[in-house]
Simulated assay, not measured.
Amino acid sequence: MHGVKRVRYSREALAAHKERERAKLKEFQGLTAEVLSRKKGNDFDKESFELTTRLLHVNPEFYTVWNYRRRILLNGIFPTSTPVQINDVLSDDLSLTTTLLKQHPKVYWIWNHRQWCLRQVPDGPTDADPNGWRQSYWNKELFVVEKMLEVDPRNFHAWTYRRIVLENMPVKRPELSELAYTKRKIEANFSNFSAWHQRSKVLSSLWESGKRDKFKSIEEELDLVKNAMYTDPGDQSVWLYHRWLISLGDSKSVVDREIQSIEELLEEQPDSKWCMESLVFYKRLLLRSYGESLADEDRRKLASDCEELLVNLQRVDPDRKQRYMDLSQHKL
């Protein structure tokens, strides 16, 4: 690499390094064999549990070991433990997954085990407040996942887990608060597809419950997405969200207006692939949905525009040339 001083190692240093690597591999293989042997023998004692901890620190993607760990908890540790002791064990396992996620934030099995732990939290701490422990854990989880999203705002594992947390919190978080959260994430980075996706989920829920007027909020969303389009017209996330919004309505005037807006952007960005693709999509939408009510001249103009755009797309996006040729041959 440029600017990095190359270090030359002696034969002795290289040999010592290789020997250390062989020793680590041998230790890992031995530990794996021991854990799998205990799993086969249905050993559910604490020693087996500690061995799974050691092995998962080395390889947190070893899903078989995660499964075995849960079997040890369910069959060996929990049956002989009080609710307070179970709570302590689960707290330790959550700490383990927190440590592992810092190094491996996109390993499914770590997220899965964390979710499993939360679902095992016992009632407590008092009969008067059986949700006490659970509420405390789930509330803390929202804080944890927000910290993860500060490190990587586009980690879709964390976004998926966030939805699980929000669904399971004993005291639900207001959906408008989540809508505001997604907006902050989007405005920080318009290419955050996961944040757009989360926003669509929250909006759909608000519309279904009648807590937000659908058509009014679609107009507000179109303003938000227009700002994103002009900021980064090459970002796919923005255009996909825009298409989702348009698919929810049934208004030719809205489609006409959005076409005009995209054409204005195309004048500023004449080689914008996504502007062209979207114009083809929406003009064909007009032909497909409103063609019978259009004048012959308007239909011909829309079809001609699509043909011209598809030719230009072959030039600006040659890797997908055949796709655009196929679209051109597909007549509505």
Rank of each mutant, 00 (worst) to 15 (best):
171 V>G: 06
171 V>I: 15
172 K>V: 14
175 E>I: 10
175 E>A: 09
176 L>D: 11
176 L>R: 11
177 S>T: 14
178 E>C: 09
178 E>M: 12
179 L>E: 07
179 L>M: 14
180 A>V: 09
181 Y>R: 11
181 Y>H: 11
181 Y>P: 06
183 K>I: 10
183 K>Q: 12
185 K>P: 00
189 N>K: 09
189 N>Y: 11
189 N>L: 10
190 F>Y: 13
192 N>C: 12
192 N>D: 07
193 F>T: 01
194 S>G: 03
195 A>C: 10
195 A>Y: 01
196 W>S: 06
196 W>P: 09
197 H>F: 10
197 H>C: 03
197 H>K: 09
198 Q>C: 13
200 S>P: 02
200 S>K: 04
201 K>F: 09
201 K>W: 04
202 V>R: 01
203 L>M: 11
203 L>A: 08
206 L>Q: 04
207 W>Q: 00
212 R>V: 14
213 D>G: 03
213 D>N: 13
214 K>D: 03
215 F>V: 03
215 F>L: 12
215 F>N: 08
215 F>S: 07
216 K>A: 03
216 K>W: 05
218 I>S: 01
223 D>A: 13
224 L>F: 09
225 V>F: 02
225 V>L: 05
227 N>F: 01
227 N>Q: 09
228 A>K: 00
228 A>D: 00
229 M>G: 00
231 T>I: 04
232 D>S: 12
233 P>H: 05
233 P>M: 05
234 G>E: 07
236 Q>H: 12
236 Q>A: 06
237 S>A: 13
238 V>T: 15
239 W>I: 07
239 W>F: 05
240 L>N: 15
241 Y>I: 10
241 Y>F: 14
241 Y>A: 09
242 H>D: 02
243 R>C: 11
244 W>S: 10
244 W>V: 12
246 I>E: 01
247 S>V: 08
247 S>N: 12
247 S>E: 10
248 L>H: 11
248 L>E: 09
249 G>A: 05
249 G>E: 10
250 D>S: 13
250 D>E: 15
250 D>L: 02
251 S>D: 15
251 S>N: 15
252 K>S: 12
252 K>M: 14
254 V>N: 04
254 V>W: 08
254 V>G: 02
256 D>Q: 13
260 Q>A: 15
260 Q>S: 14
261 S>M: 12
262 I>E: 10
263 E>H: 03
263 E>K: 15
263 E>P: 08
264 E>F: 01
265 L>H: 02
267 E>N: 07
267 E>L: 15
268 E>K: 15
270 P>T: 02
270 P>F: 06
271 D>N: 14
272 S>Q: 06
272 S>I: 02
272 S>K: 08
273 K>W: 00
276 M>S: 08
276 M>H: 04
277 E>C: 09
277 E>T: 07
278 S>G: 05
284 R>E: 13
284 R>Q: 13
286 L>W: 01
287 L>I: 07
287 L>G: 13
287 L>K: 05
288 R>G: 01
288 R>D: 11
289 S>E: 13
289 S>Q: 08
290 Y>D: 08
291 G>R: 05
291 G>I: 06
292 E>Q: 11
292 E>H: 09
293 S>Y: 00
293 S>W: 02
294 L>N: 09
294 L>C: 04
294 L>A: 06
294 L>I: 05
295 A>M: 08
295 A>I: 05
295 A>Y: 01
298 D>E: 14
299 R>S: 09
299 R>D: 02
299 R>C: 12
300 R>T: 08
300 R>N: 12
301 K>L: 15
303 A>Y: 02
303 A>H: 03
303 A>F: 03
